[in-house]
Design a protein around this nucleic acid. Structure first.
Lengths: 156, 156
DNA sequence: ACGTATAGTTGAAAATGTCAACGATTTATT
DNA sequence: AATAAATCGTTGACATTTTCAACTATACGT
């Protein structure tokens, strides 16, 4: 028996369970693709001493939107105290800076420094490579469609 | 100014950051939709004293595929020791049973009991409701397409 | 038969998530 | 204007989850 034929009879064993009805469950599919993707993303970002989380904060800090920590917490679905730790670390590395909110002095806006912007430029390249690895089973059109649907599910 | 017009100028404040380039990142979109979905799913399943994880194990145990714990770990992207805890709890509640693997006595297959099957039937209804809540911004066709794309990304 | 690899289990350590309290502000109510 | 109520960032405690190294029992390769 050829290897291919054997593979068809024993679906890689790895995804023998893919036929179970849970593969119809969006929550499960999301969780599984996210879990696999996180590993790939974090591996790609490790080179820059970043993780998915700190990378996200850095992007938002670099966006020009001058997000407050509260906005970061809401947007990233994290507890405000986790944002404190994340920003502390990035600030210690001089990648972002805190500034008092303009019309609300309780708030602190987080913006990327020039150094943060430079690191981000490099990291974004690695992140794009990681993403195409994660979505390698999709062609470009399908990948774009997937992202469009995810955005619509999130924000309508 | 109408409320709608105001909403357009100040995009709910909640998603003011949605315009940042991170919204182009599949990993981020996956993480965010998964995070929001988990809350909804777990709330729906709490009624049955289940969480996403135990619900997944129960579905797989009920699938007729007689998965081993190792297969569950691989498929659910969890450490084998986490499967032990999950199955322990479900087994204590008589929802699943462990049986020695047929051709490998090291392995243990996990199968749902009649009681587990009955609970699952109820829980699956709640899970479906939760899913349509999470994907409420998508019409039926879009939701189906999203799931198809996720499955393709995972298994080709 | 022997050494090597794998399944499940245990327990510890590290990372993450959740929550309540606090000082400094801002906003709402009188 | 004065006071009350709410919000922002922060800290620290606690719970949950993840990760990892052992260990026993069994299977597999040579």
């Amino acid at each position: 028996m050829t290897i291919e034929a054997k593979a068809e009879q024993h679906p890689a064993a790895k995804d023998r369970l893919a036929g179970a009805p849970i593969s119809q469950d969006a929550g499960f599919l999301l969780a599984k693709l996210h879990a696999g993707g996180s590993v790939v993303n974090n591996r790609a970002l490790a080179e820059f001493d970043l993780k998915e989380r700190s990378y996200s904060v850095l992007i938002l800090a670099d966006s020009g939107l001058e997000p407050t920590q509260r906005e970061l917490a809401d947007f990233l679905s994290l507890d405000p105290s986790q944002i404190v730790a994340l920003v502390d670390e990035l600030e210690k590395r001089k990648l972002v800076a805190r500034a008092p909110g303009k019309q609300d002095r309780r708030a602190k806006t987080v913006t990327a420094t020039a150094k943060g912007n430079q690191l981000l430029a490099q990291a974004a390249i690695a992140a794009r490579r990681a993403e195409s690895e994660v979505l390698s089973a999709l062609d470009a059109e399908e990948a774009a469609l997937l992202k469009t649907l995810l955005r619509k599910a999130l924000w309508g």
